[in-house]
Design a protein around this nucleic acid. Structure first.
Lengths: 356, 356
DNA sequence: CTGAAAGCGCTTACAG
DNA sequence: CTGAAAGCGCTTACAG
């Protein structure tokens, strides 16, 4: 007999399945079956057990169930941060769908730190999660081998390709910034700058950067290293700082592509401080299309990341994998370019070179 | 013998404590003791067991541990939404501190729905959480009795007072808006409007509304019902809609107090559309001080909610409660008024009445 | 369709 | 300080 951690005098004994069985006058095994495979139990018996469940307001102990069945009905997720709306929304959708499917979500955040991510995954695994949702596709090698070895189903989210064999659910970040950059080129921009959070080994931002570079290359332009400012965390203040640094070195820039909306919001504000109004003097674009993106002045041109869709699909796919199904290696959603007020025609060529 | 859910051929048998005991040449009981109460084991034996743990890279099965010890080291939390940065930040801090204390966080969101909140709590309880973190202090009665009956420690967050006996950790929402309203009165404002999300039984917003009403009353002013617009969810679009409705009915309003930053952001934008610029024509304030609040144009006057502090304190207090300590019934943090650009002197009395 | 029994991987009094 | 044994609350072959 053990002492519960918090054995207040007021605590009433919780009914267990044995109690249900006793009240219903059946064996423990039968009571269990009514709960798990009701069809194989005769209707009368089933009714009796269900009545007992009601009467005792029995509620199963999922830990015990997990221990004996090998299934916990818990799914673990590790996201970089909840501070970014794009992850908050995705997690919310994930959790909703998961709970509809009878699963509970065990959530961690890694603060964009791979070691922390690994630690969280270890903890999740110790808790016996049935499946895992991770963000992106760049992990410590140890993490991958750990998951493989335990055979726990795992999906990777927000990215396009699965480098580690985990089925991926997300968007093509590279294609999205490629299209966005094309759009800016069409508007006449030739002097580009980039504010990106690739400093952290962030595969999404890296893909976004690659898309920009590629679009420029296809157009015969090169993006020199001085035109890329890498920041640590994708927060507004860093977008601000990023823009100052960028324009200090490269005052001729007419288009700034940011790998995140928060960075773009900061960049727009910083540009204004410098007397450069978007889109008149400077075109600035974001990525994510978080709620605020459409509400800033000017509203942000950006890429819509379908976070809720990703979250829901991650839940569906993961549960399918848990049930033993094979998953498509890539599930790609559309990432629409949202052209709004923060980008526009490039300033007339002569005027801008005269300025500089 | 059971079949694991995902028994791929590649899966390697995970070492269990029995294996550790065998390798270390001790009994299962001793192996367990080394892990849980190392001091009562002799140094040599301890070393041997630890070596075996290393050699087998043993990792405990927390479900089994939970079942036999009655402690899961899992804490459950239910927040209204992760979409609001204030909750995202709080949850992040909560999880950080919890994991430092050896606990894992099981997270749910209720979408501001009390029935959903109850369902989540039930699920969390079935999973054997050692403690619970809830938001606010307005629950379905069934939720309160359920938690009481199980004796699971529970803290309430973001509010000031504990109506249900759950220790509360938060801020005094009423006092904050009282002070904010005083400030607006000092600026000469007499015609007030409020956009609030009290439509949902949201005790924080109700307290905020109460603070406004009280400050006005102490000043001899009454806030008529037509001057309060209640919206469903605290999102930017609703702030926008709220302001239109408010000014339609009460065009003489010079100060709009919003119960959330998102609402204030929408209100500022909507006012601008109407040709009313903040703070020149209209003072608008928010609540929360999320990241974006300081970055809008004009930056938002608001109240800083110390979400991270609340999250950390919730973790600390809850773990203390789990360990059997008594908790202070209220833990209050300061909620500073942040005076920024969106509020200013009331437009000259005569001018405004002439307009109307 | 139902029951008796073993077992999931641990912890913890109880003896020694 | 250490071990043998019971037990946590379930599930699931195995018989019947």
């Amino acid at each position: 007999m053990k002492a519960r951690a918090f054995d207040k005098a007021t605590t009433i004994e919780r009914a267990k399945l044995t109690d249900v069985a006793r009240v219903a006058n059946v064996s423990l095994a039968t009571a269990s079956r009514v709960l798990n495979q009701p069809v194989i139990v005769s209707p009368e018996v089933r009714e009796r057990v269900l009545a007992a469940v009601q009467a005792l307001s029995y509620t199963p102990d999922r830990m015990a169930r997990a221990l004996s069945s090998g299934r916990s009905f818990i799914v673990g997720a590790v996201v970089p941060t909840l501070g970014n709306a794009i992850f908050a929304d995705g997690v919310e959708a994930l959790q909703d769908r998961l709970s509809a499917l009878g699963y509970t979500l065990l959530l961690s955040n890694s603060q964009y730190d791979q070691q922390k991510e690994l630690d969280q995954v270890k903890a999740l695994l110790e808790h016996g999660v049935d499946g895992l949702v991770l963000v992106g596709d760049t992990f410590k090698p140890e993490l991958v081998s750990l998951i493989r070895q335990r055979g726990t189903p795992c999906v990777s989210t927000y990215g396009a390709e699965s480098r580690n064999g985990f089925p991926s659910i997300g968007i093509d970040n590279r294609a999205a910034t490629y299209a966005l950059t094309r759009h800016l080129l069409d508007l006449g921009h030739r002097q580009f700058g980039v504010i990106s959070n690739t400093a952290l080994s962030n595969d999404r931002s890296q893909a976004r950067l690659a898309g920009i570079v590629e679009a420029l290359a296809d157009f015969g332009l090169t993006l020199e290293a001085e035109r890329i400012v890498e920041i640590e965390k994708p927060i507004i203040a860093n977008g601000r700082a990023g823009l100052y640094r960028l324009l200090e070195i490269q005052p001729d820039i007419s288009a700034v592509v940011c790998t995140t909306d928060a960075l773009a919001v900061g960049a727009v504000a910083a540009a204004r401080n410098l007397g450069r109004e978007a889109p008149r003097d400077l075109s600035i674009s974001g990525f994510d299309d978080v709620e605020i993106a459409a509400e800033t002045d000017p509203p942000l041109t950006t890429v819509r990341v379908p976070a809720s869709q990703i979250g829901r699909a991650a839940a569906d796919n993961l549960v399918r994998a848990i049930q033993g199904e094979e998953l498509p290696i890539n599930t790609l959603f559309e990432a629409r370019i949202m052209i709004r007020g923060s980008t526009g025609d490039a300033p007339a060529r002569l005027a801008s070179s005269a300025d500089a």
